[in-house]
Design a protein around this nucleic acid. Structure first.
Lengths: 198, 198
DNA sequence: ACCTGAACACCGTTCAAGT
DNA sequence: ACCTGAACACCGTTCAAGT
């Protein structure tokens, strides 16, 4: 499990390398993640990473996969399907705003065909599809293919966070809305549209 | 005007540097934009850029500002406000999918306090706000602060494009929807919700 | 005012060698 | 199996100097 690396007292070199990379990423962005500094933080030489990862990109992919896997455990128990969906989306928003660098890394473009990363991504969305389907059943979301409606709400949460992080969301006046506000706006509009079918 | 640099036969060194940077960005991503290669493409030495830009980031900011300025001229004349809004959003999607690297650069996080870039960004959104207001007037969009509704539709278009570019949009099955599909889905849902107020 | 060429400190990656 | 240290080719940036 990915979270193991935070709990155990003895961490493997590989885990220490991944943790060091994530810390450097948080502190100084992608430019701060140099293999030399990663090695220093992990207590090994600057090219020890090459014994665990093919190259720097594969190390970063391991960081991203860990983030996706952790995202998974955030599920809660609500009686109300609408509240479940809202909690999932707002959890996504909160995570992205709190760890912007990990968010940008995780949802960036990957040339690495890492299976670990792809699997983590699809299984992360599966939970969201389930919540969308349940919300459709109680008619707080419009009809239609659940995967497609999931893509809609995920795209909005993702875009809202990205715009807020890059400062492209109006911060002033009464038009002000942060990413969490926009998620609520969308859910409200979708609930209002629910009975009209297409 | 920013597009001048494409039309004139005699281009200043500054313009040639910006064009060279944009071309390298398209071809090989941010990593391919080295000042040495930029200089070579522009026919100057590898540190001539420092006479026109404070550093590499300011050169990239000039590329981004040029993209935003060009985005501006895409306005069309439609009788139908809904068609105007849709054309603006789909134009944004088309541009982003065609020039993914410029899109990522332009909407990335800027530490540079470049006024040129900030002004271009706000004036680009002003056109969108106008289209949203017109669509609200003919009741194809819900009521509410136009800037906030603009943020909603922009966030969706932005997020849908970003997810499609990073391969996080389901490509298979009947749940398949690309970024343009999601824009249409949102506009349809918002039109259906129009009469319910909040 | 604009440009050049050498130089500096840094980086990712490779390789021979060690245990 | 895992790690080290030297080395290579590259990068952004600075600086003294040229016109």
């Amino acid at each position: 499990l990915s979270t193991w690396r935070y709990r155990s007292g003895v961490a493997s070199t590989r885990d220490r390398l991944v943790n060091a990379a994530a810390e450097l990423l948080d502190q100084g962005g992608p430019a701060a993640v140099t293999l030399r500094e990663v090695g220093r933080l992990a207590g090994v030489s600057h090219n020890a990473p090459y014994k665990h990862f093919a190259d720097k990109e594969e190390l970063l992919a391991a960081v991203a996969a860990g983030e996706l896997a952790q995202q998974q455990g955030e599920r809660r128990r609500h009686a109300d399907p609408a509240a479940v969906l809202r909690a999932l989306l707002l959890g996504y928003v909160r995570w992205a705003l709190r760890y912007p660098q990990r968010f940008k890394l995780t949802f960036g473009t990957w040339t690495t065909g890492s299976d670990e990363l792809a699997d983590a991504a699809t299984s992360a969305r599966t939970a969201l599809v389930g919540a969308v389907r349940a919300a459709q059943d109680v008619r707080v979301l419009p009809r239609g293919d659940p995967e497609r409606v999931t893509a809609l709400v995920l795209a909005l949460a993702h875009g809202a966070v990205d715009l807020e992080l890059s400062g492209h969301l109006a911060k002033t006046g009464k038009g002000h809305a942060d990413a969490a506000d926009l998620v609520d706006d969308l859910l409200r509009h979708l609930a209002a549209a629910r009975r009209r079918g297409a």
